[in-house]
Amino acid sequence: MAWMAWTLPTAIFFCTIACLLVLFTVLAIKYPETPRMGVLRIETTRGDRLFITLLGSAFINLAWLGLVSAPQWGALIVCLVYAAAVFRWV
């Protein structure tokens, strides 16, 4: 594994994503759902909303890094608000 040049932060990052995927898989099995129509006027399931959240969060982090000269954890707060909004309205 040395060739993969692991670091603790990246390991935590991937573990978080893996945990999210497992969590959503378990949720999908335990509480099956039907897709719903949100503000984007597209049908989404919980998994879709997770994808939109993660992809959007990546862009929020990049935008924060490039445009705002504040510590990066500020972007994480924005991401959490964004995630809540996506799961509520999309």
């Binding site: 040395a2 993969m4 040049a5």
Partner: peptide, 21 residues
């Protein structure tokens, strides 16, 4: 997936070769 994870690992580090990061 594994190459992509490696790329993520590379992106937060610097290397001068010899697999030292």
């Amino acid at each position: 997936v594994i190459p992509l994870m490696t790329v993520v690992n590379y992106s937060v580090q610097d290397t001068f070769g010899n697999n030292q990061f």
